[in-house]
Amino acid sequence: MRRPLTILVLLAVSAPCLAQDPFSSLEIRIQATQNVNQNILHDHWHPGRGMKASLVTPFYFGDWGISLGVHRFDARSDVPGFGALWISSDWGARLPFGYRFALTPTVGIGNYRMSFDDAVTTFSGESSESDFVSSASLRASLRIGRDWFLFGQAEHLCVQTRPLMQLWFVSAGIGYQMETGKLLKAILE
């Protein structure tokens, strides 16, 4: 009995992301981010605050978005501090609970570019590094008007360095949703 019920609940909450008009709307989101975990990276660097901006639109299934994030790591020891620019493409499935509240698990991939304050080696172009990054997150959003919403997000970044950079971020922000209109929809399509 439990299994069919689970399937029905999953179907009920996932139906909106399956039956939707692709690129019919556009969400603009901005959020403040903070790295909160501790691991070997944090033995050498102290995380500063960051910002992230995103554009999200309904896709053929789920939502698809692109994000641009910046944050900083200040040096704790004899290493250069660095600023990180993080560009990613994300896909998520929006699970609404009533009209105002929704949970959205997302996965994403992208590029994580680090610009170091000082290059200490003699090789050219060593002041920056770009690496592949994958991410997974859970976002909770609360609608506060017809177009505006507040949201909080917990996100895990895995930058594919050796050793891996495992970063947990918590963030909060505000978003605005608008209809794309014919021209913007045609461009997105």
Partner: peptide
């Protein structure tokens, strides 16, 4: 597999 910041 790049060392990224760990190179320092």
């Amino acid at each position: 597999g790049d060392p990224g910041p760990y190179k320092y």
